[in-house]
């Protein structure tokens, strides 16, 4: 009886896995299918240039690619120390009310819709940014990065926290018996042993930042230019798709949407592959 049930569970899980994998391949296939005419028509060179001005016949999406990279890196860099601090606090104050409350808040943060972050930031973050720096309208790389950092913070915290709890158990007992304080445990035992988890958490957060369209669309200003400072307006690939999707479907501008989609897909795939490679190297070094 139990064997039979196990068989069903196994098949069920297999089916679920295959469906998800198939969905991803279908997505890639459709993206390739739609950008096929583009890839072979020689128009591709037009897209890989630094100037976007569809009314004058310039369709370069490289500024958007740069925008995506800058924004994602900056927001991950901002979220990283905060996430590490929160995890250290939760670890060292494991049984206190405060750390449980903090964990709860982080959980709640994951369920707030992105558009709320964007909307609230438009009203409470953009005006002070404009006043304090007095450079432009306040819709800029830095504003978007601050909000996006906040958005990806819970992802990083929760993934890393899960790794810590998983790796915890025996390591904690041993280090405690050696007389290490909770902070020493965290810094010298847990952090090195869970570094894989930290990398995974960061990659996940980074990929979320790359893929998010709402925050940059509402806060980054969307000017298709190469930013000279953190206070310049930028456009990301995801925001570009959202902005251009409704244009004349026969135009070159519309074609750039598929190229942007493909580029986003490739970027995320590359980052994930890189993370996988790093993890394997780290693992073999540990052994």
């Amino acid at each position: 009886m139990t064997l039979r049930r196990e068989w069903w569970i196994q098949k069920g899980l297999l089916a679920a896995t295959l469906t998800s994998v198939a969905a991803i391949f279908l997505l890639l296939f459709l993206l390739l299918y739609f950008s096929f005419p583009l890839l072979f028509s020689g128009d591709l060179k037009q897209l890989f240039s630094w100037r976007w001005n569809p009314f004058e016949g310039h369709y370069g999406i490289l500024p958007m690619m740069l925008g995506t990279l800058l924004l994602s890196i900056l927001s991950t860099v901002m979220a990283f120390p905060a996430a590490l601090g929160i995890c250290a606090f939760i670890y060292t104050h494991r049984n206190s009310c405060l750390s449980r409350l903090l964990l709860l808040v982080v959980h709640v943060m994951t369920s707030i819709p992105t558009v709320i972050y964007g909307f609230v930031s438009v009203f409470i973050l953009v005006p002070p940014m404009r006043r304090i720096f007095a450079a432009g309208a306040g819709f800029c790389l830095l504003t978007a990065a601050l909000t996006l950092g906040l958005l990806i913070l819970p992802t990083i915290v929760l993934v890393f926290h899960a790794y810590l709890t998983q790796a915890g158990g025996s390591l904690r007992a041993v280090s405690e018996s050696l007389g290490l304080t909770p902070m020493e445990q965290f810094c010298f035992v847990m952090l090195p042993s869970a570094s894989r988890g930290l990398v995974s958490a960061l990659i996940l957060g980074f990929c979320r930042a790359v893929g998010d369209a709402m925050i940059p669309l509402m806060l980054a200003g969307n000017a298709a230019q190469i930013p000279a400072s953190f206070l310049d307006s930028i456009r990301t690939l995801s925001a570009h798709v959202a902005l251009v999707l409704a244009t004349d479907s026969q135009s070159m501008a519309y074609q750039s949407v598929f190229a942007s989609g493909l580029l986003l897909f490739v970027m995320i795939a590359m980052v994930t592959a890189l993370a996988h490679h790093l993890n394997r190297n780290m693992l073999s070094r540990c052994r």
């Binding site: 976007w52 001005n53 432009g136 309208a137 819709f139 669309l217 200003g221 969307n222 000017a223 298709a224 230019q225 310049d232 307006s233 456009r235 959202a242 902005l243």
Partner: peptide, 8 residues
């Protein structure tokens, strides 16, 4: 101007 902010 390219530096103009774009709203949707």
């Amino acid at each position: 101007a390219t530096r103009a902010d774009v709203v949707p």
